[in-house]
């Protein structure tokens, strides 16, 4: 299957495309305006570097020589003019940027130092796997929910409350950022240590009648209460 590919002539295609450009609008007196521009450049040098700039001369009336002078002085400041707007096209010579028209105003995203994106505050952390021995889950921003057990030797640290839908065999520390109203809930309590806002109880102090039952721990003033749920 030897197909001889003849020379395919591609028709010249023209496409329209719009770009965003800065517009500089000089005002009289031109010399003063240039000084002001210099001041701006001192404050943020490189502001115009590599950016397309359009010169809007609608506010001033300049001769061809004055326009040439203006373009040259902008060029010295590293501002390259892409086109000129608001001027009679007959004033422009062929070595000047072309005349533009029909520009529309739009918002320009200035290259200011980017602000870190404000994330909505995450109030809880959900874990759908068991927390294994030796693992430590630290979430100072809010509640921690575990859909599974927390193994002996595992550790959950939460700024808010801790919910364990399984057996809590490890350590649970709730309200670590000074939140005495945080609580610890679990479906079966066999915890090694429970702490809320710095007040803690170890397994030894845990009432034997509570073991293997759904329970919650909460602070009553400076005393930790552990009570069965249901």
């Amino acid at each position: 299957m030897d197909a001889i590919a003849g020379p395919v002539t591609q028709p010249v295609r023209l496409r329209g495309r719009s770009y965003l450009a800065f517009v500089l609008t000089p005002v009289v007196p031109i010399m003063e305006w240039l000084h002001e521009l210099d001041d701006t450049l001192v404050r943020s040098p490189g502001f115009f570097v590599g950016k397309p700039v359009v010169l809007d001369l609608s506010a001033v009336e300049l001769s061809r020589a004055a326009i040439t002078h203006l373009i040259v002085s902008l060029d010295k400041k590293n501002i390259r003019v892409l086109g000129i707007e608001g001027v009679d096209a007959s004033l422009l010579t062929s070595n000047m940027p072309p005349a533009l028209s029909g520009g529309r105003t739009c918002a320009i995203a200035l290259a200011e130092p980017e602000k870190p994106e404000v994330k909505p505050p995450v109030a809880s952390l959900m874990l759908d796997i068991p927390v294994r021995s030796g693992q430590s889950v630290v979430f100072p921003d809010g509640d921690v929910t575990v859909l599974g057990s927390v193994g002996s030797g595992a550790e959950i640290v939460a700024g808010g409350s801790i919910h364990v839908y399984g057996t809590l065999r490890g350590r649970a520390m709730a309200g670590v950022n000074g939140n005495p109203s945080a609580r610890i809930f679990c479906q079966k309590i066999e915890a090694e240590l429970l702490a809320i806002d710095g007040y803690y109880q170890t397994a030894e102090e845990l009432d034997a009648s509570l073991r293997n039952r759904p329970a919650q721990a909460w602070l009553d003033g400076r005393i930790m209460r552990i009570t069965p749920l249901t």
Partner: peptide, 16 residues
């Protein structure tokens, strides 16, 4: 035994 089971739990966590 409890010690072996707890160590196994730790290892499962590492496998995951």
């Amino acid at each position: 035994e409890v010690s072996s089971v707890r160590d196994s739990d730790r290892i499962i966590g590492m496998l995951d």
